[in-house]
Design a protein around this nucleic acid. Sequence first.
DNA 1: TATTGTTATACTCTATAACTATA
DNA 2: TATAGTTATAGAGTATAACAATA
Lengths: 144, 144
Amino acid sequence: MIALGPLDELVGYHLRRASSAMRMDFAETFAETPMRQVLFGVLSVVSAMPGLSQGKVAEALGIRRANMVALVNELVDLGLIARTTDHRDRRAFSLSLTQAGEAMLHEALAQIRRHEDRMLENLTTTERSTLVNLLRKIHGSTSR
Amino acid sequence: MIALGPLDELVGYHLRRASSAMRMDFAETFAETPMRQVLFGVLSVVSAMPGLSQGKVAEALGIRRANMVALVNELVDLGLIARTTDHRDRRAFSLSLTQAGEAMLHEALAQIRRHEDRMLENLTTTERSTLVNLLRKIHGSTSR
DNA sequence: TATTGTTATACTCTATAACTATA
DNA sequence: TATAGTTATAGAGTATAACAATA
């Protein structure tokens, strides 16, 4: 085992490695499909708050509006979300899931739960919930 | 507060947000300098294991050899690490820190500790160490 | 044959600046 | 003037494949 030096005491380093491990296993889980972490995030928020504007969804997920455009285009092209102009503010788009989008959300969620169970098998249920609560304290954007 | 749906229960999501928050504050902390998370990682490992080959340093950090090349070039150009051919295996490079590299490692470490203290001010010392241990269980590459 | 470092390449993520249409 | 979405662009991270030199 190679010594890491002071790096090994830094939270930022371990966050990067753990996040990267999750991201890579997520990608493997959805290889040969268009699903990615960030696309699932959009589906989940739109499902929870149908009719929300594109910009608000981006804000909830910590995504810049400029970067949201291609993501929404992708999901619309895949037939997973519908984008309609808000009749009360014609600058804005209201997003909602199509039936295919709802189905995809639920299918993907089941796969993601298996992926997380696999990646987190060394953590007890309590540890897992402790971890989520500690992470929420760091990024500060919790919905509760 | 906007509801996130099932996303809010997923460890992968919170890892991504927390890691991203740390990465962005790190970048701000070292704005106007060439220091980045990954460059600090290389300096730290090389300092802990001087003489190690480029490939071994990459492996310890979870970096592909192909991507390591530019990082080492950058650190050599900055005068922070020395790259000498290993006389026992002339394919390999032995890496070590220059004096400037050692100085930079220690200066940057002090700044990183302040950055982490700032970002993690809502966590107790115990929570912080719990977090690191849980993250180690996920990525599995610990040096102890 | 296998390994070390290298080059070339490509895709994703993320950031900024400037534009348009609406408010 | 300000805001929602858009376009263009650029830097960083990370992945693969193929190559030269050496083992």
